[in-house]
């Protein structure tokens, strides 16, 4: 199917700006209710430092930030490599139940599908 974009050979670039004016994603709101300790995260990165799946792109800190900022697109693919070993939860200095966050996120994304 031909679109006008093809005619021009280019399209306006997607904005890179994080827009906090957007309403909080319902999925993130549910997650905060299910795992209240998520509120304690201060993005230190201890979780991703110890993560086996971090080399494959999994980064709990980034996933949480994306959710906070309402940027849902990449979350599913970022958490896919997680094997739920829970090492991140062991190192978390704020006692965030990181494993439970990923677990519930996987369940929720599964249900959305």
């Amino acid at each position: 199917m031909s679109t006008k974009g093809d005619k021009w050979g280019f399209q306006p670039e997607k904005s890179n700006v994080i827009v906090l004016d957007r309403p909080v994603a319902p999925l993130y709101r549910q997650l905060r209710l299910k795992v209240p300790s998520l509120a304690s995260c201060f993005f230190c990165g201890g979780c991703s430092a110890t993560c086996t799946a971090s080399e494959e792109g999994m980064n709990f800190r980034v996933v949480h930030l994306l959710l906070c900022r309402g940027e849902m697109e990449k979350v599913g693919s970022l958490i896919a490599p997680c094997l739920l070993c829970g090492k991140c939860t062991l190192v978390c200095p704020r006692n965030v139940d990181t494993r439970s966050v990923v677990f519930n996120l996987k369940l929720a994304l599964h249900e959305l599908q």
Binding site: T52, L83, L84, C85, G86, K87, L90, R99
Partner: peptide, 9 residues
């Protein structure tokens, strides 16, 4: 193995 004690030390 990871799942021996990392989940529940």
């Amino acid at each position: 193995g990871c799942h021996y004690a990392k989940i529940f030390p």
